[in-house]
């Protein structure tokens, strides 16, 4: 089925320096369609820096990010023109922020939040946009009658689901997530995890998810990368890394989880 497909994304020796300080250093990996990569590590370990550098939000000091585009084949993301890169970021890529306020426009309706991404790629048919937005609200389990409401009237969990709908409406192939379950209480988190896993499977999405929650990483990701001080210190099959960690820091991380 999906075996032996070409990588969708290839990251080579990615390094981000802030002056003398290391953001992330010499990170290399590949990601295939349908594959979920988790990145874990403590605060300040370089997870978010790495995510921003891969997702074309912050040009790295060194290294390349190659992406298999739909039209032009494999392209170095930082060699594209600004316009090409912007198009990629709002069509084939999606970015789910920890805080929905960073990913939503709070002063326009839920429907407009979803429709905006469609209009950005040239959809001009109002009725189509509206029905598409409505169907996505359904997929993320938000009632249709909230279509014209402002996101600011939504709960945190609903805002997060709306952000996901806004991102996935253009059928992206690669989704970046930065602590997507971060500020949510446990029952809402479970619902979101269930939703995300379903969408990943149904849409064959490739996902890079940054989280500090090892339980979330276990349930969602196929592979896990552990970061410490900007470097990847362990990388492998998720359950292998969590159940039989080799690196001292990973062992510390895993043994520090509270049991319930």
């Amino acid at each position: 089925m999906t075996q032996m497909t070409d990588p969708l994304l290839r990251v080579n020796n990615l390094t981000m320096m802030y002056g003398d300080r290391v953001g992330c250093k010499d990170v290399s990996f590949e990601l295939r369609p349908g594959e979920v990569l988790g990145i874990v590590g403590e605060s300040g370990s370089g997870k978010s820096t790495l995510l921003r550098s891969i997702s074309a939000q912050q040009e790295p000091t060194k290294g390349t990010v190659e992406y298999h585009t739909r039209i032009d084949g494999v392209r170095d993301v930082y060699q594209m023109s600004e316009a090409q890169r912007r198009l990629l970021m709002r069509t084939d890529w999606a970015f789910v922020h920890q805080n929905p306020r960073d990913g939503l426009r709070m002063n326009v309706s839920a429907g407009a939040n979803i429709g905006e991404r469609l209009m950005a790629i040239g959809d001009r048919h109002y009725a189509n946009i509206r029905s598409n937005a409505d169907s996505w609200l359904g997929k993320v389990e938000i009632a249709s009658e909230r279509l014209d409401d402002l996101p600011s009237t939504f709960s945190g969990g609903m805002q997060q689901r709306l952000q996901i709908a806004r991102n996935l409406v253009t059928s992206p192939r690669l989704v970046f997530m930065d602590e997507p379950t971060g500020g949510l209480d446990v029952s809402v988190q479970a619902r979101l995890l269930d939703l995300l896993r379903g969408l990943v499977h149904d849409l064959n999405l490739a996902v890079i998810i940054v989280t500090h929650d090892l339980a979330v990483a276990r349930l969602l990701s196929h592979r896990l990368m552990v970061m410490q001080q900007g470097k990847v210190i362990e990388h492998g099959l998720t359950d292998q890394v969590l159940d039989d960690p080799q690196h001292p820091y990973t062992q510390l991380l895993v043994s520090s989880i509270l049991q319930n």
Binding site: Q3, A190, R191, D194, G236
Partner: peptide, 26 residues
Amino acid sequence: SPHSILEVRKRTMGYVSQFLRVIPRV
């Protein structure tokens, strides 16, 4: 590779562990 191991687990090798690990709500 992790990818190959996941393929093996998907199609060739099943494992009944003593623990059930699932996403809540499913």
